[in-house]
């Protein structure tokens, strides 16, 4: 009985999120456009996430290289280390790990910010003054998250590859030019494009879930904490589901 009611609640929430997404799409193109707020959100969501994303990217590239080296040495393909690491990073690890870090930082921050605005009646105040809080608060944040995550993933990938270069040179001697030649000789268009496209969906998912949880926050400060927490949990799960779908679609389209 308990499982049925949990399933029922999950399905209800899925329906509510779909309706919220529909509302977002219906508001997206309609004027008035909150351009200034959009750029402010891009700065907060994108620029201010860069140090965290850059650091995790660097460590990701370095550690992956150091962990792979012994096996590569055993098989006698140590020279292929840059190629293998770069493909793994660009196709899968970079987008997914960056999106998860992004969900942790941005999803929770949007959920908490909108949640506290809801419980302190700031969203109601916007509504009663005849302005459109959905457009100002939700559309700008979701759009900014959708645009900024692909940029962050590209930068994170680049930093991760630099980490990989350092990792390769801890116990080897590969020149900078040779490293990049090996990376780009082994990367194809179909490695980069699907990975790049799916990051827009990851960014959208983080933005819409964070906004949904915060915008519909209830029950005071406890509700705000719960909104922030569930924004991270739900958007992380959705990132994995979207990744699974992206891999299947890429496979069906023959990008391998």
């Amino acid at each position: 009985m308990k499982q049925i009611s949990s399933l029922n609640a999950a399905l209800n929430e899925a329906g509510d999120i779909s309706r919220f997404t529909g509302r977002f799409l219906s508001h997206w193109f309609k004027p008035r456009y909150e351009v200034a707020e959009f750029f402010r959100q891009c700065f907060i969501i994108g620029y201010k996430s860069l140090p965290l994303v850059g650091l995790t990217g660097f460590i990701m590239g370095l550690v992956l290289t150091m962990q792979l080296r012994p096996s590569m040495v055993d098989y006698g393909v140590e020279s292929q280390l840059p190629a293998i690491v770069s493909i793994a990073l660009i196709r899968e690890i970079g987008p997914v790990i960056t999106a998860l870090i992004f969900a942790g930082k941005i999803g929770s921050s949007i959920g908490a910010e909108l949640g506290s605005m809801r419980v302190t009646e700031q969203i109601d105040a916007m509504e009663v003054s005849g302005t459109n809080p959905f457009k100002y608060l939700v559309v700008t944040r979701v759009f900014a998250a959708t645009c900024m995550l692909p940029v962050l993933v590209m930068l994170s990938d680049a930093i991760a590859l630099y980490g990989c270069y350092l990792g390769v040179n801890i116990r080897g001697d590969t020149s900078f030019n040779l490293f990049w030649t090996q990376v780009f000789d082994n990367l194809a268009f179909y490695d980069v494009l699907p990975a790049f496209v799916k990051t827009f969906f990851f960014g959208f998912a983080v933005g819409i879930i964070g906004c949904y949880k915060g915008y519909n926050s209830r029950k005071g400060t406890e509700g705000v904490g719960r909104s922030a927490n569930s924004a991270v949990v739900v958007s992380s799960i959705i990132i994995f589901v979207l990744d699974l779908l992206a891999v299947q679609i890429t496979d069906l389209l023959g990008f391998y």
């Binding site: 302190t120 009646e121 700031q122 109601d124 105040a125 916007m126 509504e127 009663v128 003054s129 005849g130």
Partner: peptide, 16 residues
Amino acid sequence: IRTKIGFLFQSNALYD
């Protein structure tokens, strides 16, 4: 019509 109606919240609801 809301532009013709002002609303003062108990909590003030200033944008913090």
